[in-house]
Nucleic acid binder design. Sequence first.
DNA 1: GTAATCCCTAGTAAATTGATAGGATTAATG
DNA 2: CATTAATCCTATCAATTTACTAGGGATTAC
Lengths: 137, 137
Amino acid sequence: MLSKKTKYGLKALTYISRTKSDSPVQVSTISKSEQIPQKFLESILLTLRKAGILGSKKGKHGGYYLRHEPSEIKMTDVMRVLEGPIAMVPCVSLNYYEKCDDCPDENKCSVHRLMIQVRDNTLSVFRNTTLEDLSNE
Amino acid sequence: MLSKKTKYGLKALTYISRTKSDSPVQVSTISKSEQIPQKFLESILLTLRKAGILGSKKGKHGGYYLRHEPSEIKMTDVMRVLEGPIAMVPCVSLNYYEKCDDCPDENKCSVHRLMIQVRDNTLSVFRNTTLEDLSNE
DNA sequence: GTAATCCCTAGTAAATTGATAGGATTAATG
DNA sequence: CATTAATCCTATCAATTTACTAGGGATTAC
């Protein structure tokens, strides 16, 4: 299941991306428009900022803005920040690999081989989708 | 993340499928061989039996067996029983569809459209993989 | 200097996960 | 028929994760 954190994060990014304005977008604005609890959203946008995806401006008339063009923000990056590893098991994770305690030989593990296929398919979707794609329509 | 329940379930099914014997396979045998807590495994195999994937024989020399040929047991069915919906959000689930509270128009929702792609890709893997595939090698 | 904004740390209730406990039921076997 | 070995069933539980909320600190525009 996709966490609400990820869902809210994606919606917020989409919102900011669609807002074609020079001034940064405020948390309260996004919160109201997308029906996201404000304090929760605050913490999510903070995470995205710390990951380098968003930038922020403090104080009055402050807010958040994209650090790069929407077409250059890949879903692989966004998903890893918000949801964590893309793989369903650590033993097939590219970025967070971990050996299974039980499994003596990964190549002979049926679960391993199945999950590699799922990972590759999911990865290809996220690699080929940018924030620009999400923001269209 | 794949739950341990699903992981254990898949490993157990693979084990049973590889055991080419007429007599049913006992929980304790699988438990030892695959390093799965016995009581936990018991409950998992019970679930698979109730879903019609496994059959069981009670009493001495009892155990579990496959109800169909490995080549006819699709991962879509197994995964739905063990892990639940394949979709990452209810609003793109084929079997467990649910509308989002917030989302006024699904076709315009960026998360919705992205998650449909992920679902379709994952689904194609599970549809094209049977227990026989898992059991080879 | 005041209002509006992000920044940061804590805490917390509810749900889920990954088990464990204990026994009831059923069947094979001597 | 008694014993043993299996599944079946219900209940419980600790740890973790999720989805928030609270409360204030720091910064900036005006």
